[in-house]
Amino acid sequence: MSFVKFSPRICFFLGFAACASLLGIGAYLQFVEELEPCPLCISQRLAILATGVIFLMAGLHSRGRKVYAVCSAVAALIGASVSARHVWLQHLPPEEVPECSPGLEYVFQHFPLADTIKLMLTGTGECAKIDWTLLGLSIPAWTLFAFILLAGWACLQFFNDADAV
């Protein structure tokens, strides 16, 4: 019994489709379920977007499979690190949770860019709040799981030498 092997380009397009789906789910949760994203959620969305763009570029190009695989895996692992921090913040005892900050729009308008980026990557008190769960896992936990899968998928393309299907 032989397994069907897909070309790396098709696999990269599948990775892009997964990232687009994740962004669609995020938009649904924000605009339909009215769950406002915190700074770490926005950072995770940016990491999903970056990973998806790399997957898309890899699918469009016929060369550089290994470079694209490494770049997309690195982007996914950066997103996983942000998600891991978010999960960690959500599991802190209430007395150790950092203070809430002003809204992100206010921070962008009145704070230096370096402080804004630091806030988006380290999180604040509102990042510790769990608004929604599925099977006992919060959104950042599911996002961490998705990032790990995306990084694994990208790493598999590093070794994918299928000609075409």
Results as ranks from 00 to 15, higher is better:
residue 120 M to V: 07
residue 40 L to K: 05
residue 12 F to R: 03
residue 28 Y to Q: 10
residue 42 I to S: 10
residue 149 L to P: 01
residue 9 R to P: 03
residue 8 P to T: 07
residue 148 I to N: 02
residue 139 I to H: 07
residue 17 A to H: 01
residue 115 D to Q: 11
residue 84 A to R: 13
residue 155 C to P: 00
residue 20 A to E: 06
residue 119 L to Y: 03
residue 92 L to D: 03
residue 107 V to W: 09
residue 142 W to L: 13
residue 153 W to C: 09
residue 49 L to M: 15
residue 155 C to W: 13
residue 3 F to P: 00
residue 147 F to C: 02
residue 73 A to H: 04
residue 44 Q to F: 04
residue 118 K to G: 08
residue 62 S to A: 10
residue 134 L to D: 00
residue 135 L to M: 14
residue 130 I to R: 07
residue 19 C to S: 13
residue 151 A to C: 10
residue 5 K to Q: 14
residue 35 L to M: 10
residue 48 I to R: 01
residue 71 C to S: 15
residue 89 L to A: 03
residue 53 V to P: 01
residue 112 P to F: 09
residue 152 G to K: 05
residue 42 I to D: 10
residue 46 L to V: 13
residue 3 F to C: 04
residue 95 E to T: 09
residue 132 W to Q: 05
residue 38 C to F: 12
residue 165 V to T: 14
residue 66 K to C: 10
residue 103 G to W: 06
residue 146 A to Y: 04
residue 75 A to K: 05
residue 158 F to R: 03
residue 98 P to N: 02
residue 31 F to L: 13
residue 68 Y to R: 03
residue 165 V to A: 14
residue 162 A to M: 04
residue 23 L to A: 07
residue 66 K to I: 12
residue 52 G to Y: 05
residue 118 K to D: 11
residue 160 N to T: 10
residue 133 T to H: 00
residue 12 F to I: 07
residue 19 C to T: 10
residue 106 Y to R: 13
residue 56 L to N: 04
residue 35 L to T: 04
residue 5 K to T: 14
residue 101 S to H: 11
residue 120 M to D: 01
residue 116 T to H: 11
residue 108 F to V: 12
residue 113 L to R: 13
residue 132 W to D: 10
residue 42 I to M: 15
residue 99 E to W: 01
residue 56 L to C: 13
residue 128 A to Y: 02
residue 118 K to W: 13
residue 47 A to D: 10
residue 126 E to K: 12
residue 153 W to F: 15
residue 10 I to S: 07
residue 110 H to Q: 08
residue 29 L to G: 03
residue 94 P to E: 10
residue 12 F to N: 01
residue 135 L to T: 12
residue 84 A to M: 14
residue 129 K to N: 06
residue 73 A to Y: 05
residue 160 N to H: 03
residue 57 M to D: 06
residue 94 P to T: 06
residue 155 C to D: 08
residue 4 V to F: 11
residue 24 G to H: 04
residue 139 I to K: 09
residue 43 S to W: 05
residue 40 L to Y: 05
residue 57 M to K: 11
residue 18 A to E: 06
residue 115 D to S: 13
residue 124 T to L: 00
residue 147 F to Q: 02
residue 98 P to Y: 06
residue 118 K to Q: 12
residue 119 L to A: 06
residue 124 T to D: 15
residue 5 K to G: 14
residue 153 W to D: 06
residue 144 L to P: 01
residue 7 S to P: 07
residue 110 H to L: 08
residue 50 A to K: 02
residue 22 L to V: 15
residue 113 L to Y: 10
residue 52 G to M: 07
residue 78 I to C: 13
residue 117 I to N: 02
residue 59 G to W: 02
residue 41 C to W: 02
residue 85 R to N: 15
residue 137 L to E: 08
residue 133 T to N: 08
residue 147 F to D: 02
residue 26 G to K: 06
residue 24 G to E: 03
residue 110 H to C: 10
residue 70 V to H: 00
residue 131 D to Y: 08
residue 23 L to E: 04
residue 47 A to L: 07
residue 154 A to R: 08
residue 4 V to Q: 00
residue 84 A to L: 15
residue 86 H to T: 09
residue 28 Y to G: 05
residue 28 Y to K: 07
residue 31 F to P: 00
residue 17 A to S: 09
residue 156 L to T: 14
residue 77 L to Q: 04
residue 129 K to L: 13
residue 23 L to M: 11
residue 146 A to D: 04
residue 97 V to C: 05
residue 162 A to L: 08
residue 26 G to H: 14
residue 127 C to Y: 02
residue 45 R to C: 12
residue 104 L to F: 12
residue 1 M to I: 15
residue 129 K to W: 04
residue 87 V to P: 12
residue 139 I to P: 00
residue 14 L to R: 00
